[in-house]
Design a protein around this nucleic acid. Sequence first.
RNA 1: GGCCCGUUCGUCUAUCGGUUAGGACACCAGGUUUUCAACCUGGGAAGAGGGGUUCGACUCCCCUACGGGCUGCCA
Length: 466
Amino acid sequence: MTSPVVTRFAPSPTGYLHIGGGRTALFNWLFARGRGAKFLLRIEDTDRERSTPEATAAILRGLTWLGLDWDGDVVSQFEGRERHAEVAHQMLARGTAYKCFSTKEEIDAFRAEAEARGSYAVFQSPWRDADPATHPNAPFAIRMKAPREGETVIDDQVQGRVVIKNETLDDMIVLRSDNTPTYMLAVVVDDHDMGVTHVIRGDDHLVNAARQQMIYDAMGWAVPTWAHIPLIHGPDGKKLSKRHGALGVEEYQVMGYPAAGMRNYLTRLGWAHGDAEFFTTEQATEWFDLKGIGRAPARLDFKKLENLCGQHIAASDDAALLHELEAFLAVSGQPTLTDSQRALMQSGMASLKERAKTFPELLDKARYIMSSRPISRDEAAEKALDAVSRGILQSLTPQLRNASWTKDDLEAILTGAAAANGIGFGKLAAPLRAALAGRTVSPSVYDMMLVIGQDETIARLEDAAA
RNA sequence: GGCCCGUUCGUCUAUCGGUUAGGACACCAGGUUUUCAACCUGGGAAGAGGGGUUCGACUCCCCUACGGGCUGCCA
């Protein structure tokens, strides 16, 4: 009988949602959602010094923006501390753990001495096999009685069969002398209690998996399926750091990348499904598997991210895109759309979305919608509006006033005007763009005219011709 | 220092012993065009190095180099 699949994402609330953490969460989510399984969220807040509620909130916001919804309530690891202590004591009772009275000072001294000698032996507690009768009446930590010989084998779905010699692992502390659980114990207990079947996490935990597996064995619990994924590196191949900027998932939102494109890019980073590059989230959940995860760390490539985002923007539903655009405006601290801007955006979206890779870019292309008369013009636009062009624009307005305002009608008028003036259409389009958008780079003149309408078009042309 | 993991075009990757080593992004050239974007065509571009195993290695094994991780009463 195979138990139903359960995955989880377990971040420490010590900062925002890291881009690597976001991808780890995404992989877990994809794996679960593709199998009708559960995706749980647990906050590893046992380190009271470094954990903050603000960080937890930021992580939740990041996940939500990425569209990764979790099942059930968010679990606080700290809340389970009594259960963790209980398990530590069960280990004691089973003889798979022991009380260690060595003080932190003694252990530090041992390490310092070892280092001075140039050796790096693991600390071996003198209390491992001590007679309980000799136990002092003093605070103690509970240490796992780890096997000293043999090896622990991690059957990893990504890294393959990884063998760790037990002699290289020490008797880790599972319960501190102040009765608080350590991470090693807490993860195992929580994953077991939450029924987690697949642990998909960064490969910085690969060796930890061996230690954790010892606890599973000590408690006689079923070991989950391991999948340790490589970390993400910066564009320079080095560890991701502040220097690379854009470490937090939310920063990507502020930069204006659409969530769908972000998901696509992050999924593709370190995972492959043949030659599939551009895909929907539905396809991703359907295709995602552990086998497709690569073993080497991947670098962030903003160009590819942008390309994918452009494709997703173009493929998006107009109304949904407008909603996401407004959300972007809000998080990036920009003014909200006025009612008329929103209405124009709605009708202009179809042409706008074909040409933008990010929301700032889309907004830039939508300048003809975002600005109102009088339209301010940049230098190139000013140049395009020379005396001759102004004259042509002037001569155009009577015809436009009588136009039926359909694409065909406008096309007939404009190409006719170009021909009448003995110029190519491109020569006419430049001043039109300048008049309509204040720039010589803009969406199609027909699209702009159709979106802003007859009156506004004529008014802008008259402004420019004046 | 010890242990563990990794290494295919600039980047993300395909390949699961036999391929002219494929695709995508980026780049370069040309085309189309109503500017930008898009689009079309073409191009350059890779198995870290060295040993094995094998009729045959990118693929399996070993060594080296480089990168990363772990080595806490942090997570």
